[in-house]
Simulated assay, not measured.
Amino acid sequence: MSTTRFDHLVVAAANVSAGVDYLERQLGVRLPKGGEHPRMGTHNHLMRLSANSFVEVIAIDPDAAPPSRPRWFGLDDPHVRASLAASPRLLTWAVNTPQLEALALGEVPLGRIEPMSRGALNWDITVAADGSLAAGGLLPAVLQWHCDTHPAERMQDLGCRLTRLTLYHPRADWLAACLQRLGAAELARVEPLADSEDAWLEAELETPLGRRVLSSRVPQRPAAV
């Protein structure tokens, strides 16, 4: 039986206030403040999805010292930053496991294990050396919490629940095989795309506004007439 569990959705924004406003429009709830990540120069707001899962809005912290390495979730990538300047969006997802080292040493390209903290909370997480998103965000970040209970238990419950996570990718068989190796095959549905299409993911949630979908798809600008 797999010990890999869905952990959280990562929604990013050019600044954290824009991200909170965006999710309020999309989901009908306003996420409370989380805290700061000193090693990455970021901060977040958080909301519980279940007793062991949550959604976070993350952004570069303008008051933090720049980190000595690229920030996680591709937040230093010029293309990611340009897209977030246009609109906040779902970037990626994360899973947790008590066997992080074994998974990180496997065949799936996850990056290196990095120790992280936020206040008194500590965990290890996989991050690429250049900070880039694994498979453009479709492969999850993998983490291992160092706490007795999942942090989501202490987050505010605003009535939102994740009902489905779908990954769209031109190499759907490869992506499904990677998830199988991570023990995460049952956590998301994988759908194929044409070779010419860009990969993206979407999360379906039940919210106070009803069914809502968050997407990593970058909106296409209308062609000039």
Rank of each mutant, 00 (worst) to 15 (best):
R217H: 06
A224M: 11
A203T: 05
N122M: 13
A185W: 05
Q144K: 02
A128N: 11
L100E: 01
T97V: 04
S87C: 07
S117L: 12
L46I: 14
R5P: 07
L9W: 06
P38H: 00
R171W: 08
E206L: 15
A152S: 12
A65W: 07
T97Y: 07
L182A: 02
V108H: 01
A120Y: 12
T166N: 03
V80S: 01
D157E: 10
E56N: 05
S132M: 08
Q26L: 15
T149K: 09
K33G: 11
S50G: 12
S53D: 10
R221I: 11
R161I: 12
V29K: 03
P115Q: 04
P151S: 09
E197Y: 07
L201Y: 05
A18C: 06
L182V: 00
P98D: 04
R39K: 10
M116F: 14
A14L: 01
A120E: 12
W174A: 08
L100K: 06
L46G: 03
P170L: 04
L105P: 09
A94G: 13
A12F: 01
N44R: 11
P115G: 04
A224Q: 13
I58S: 03
S117A: 13
A82P: 01
P208W: 02
A64R: 00
Q144D: 03
L187G: 10
R211E: 13
R30T: 03
G41S: 00
Y22D: 03
F54A: 11
S53H: 05
T126H: 05
N52L: 08
P192A: 09
L214M: 02
S83M: 03
E202P: 05
P70E: 02
L49K: 09
P170F: 06
W93M: 00
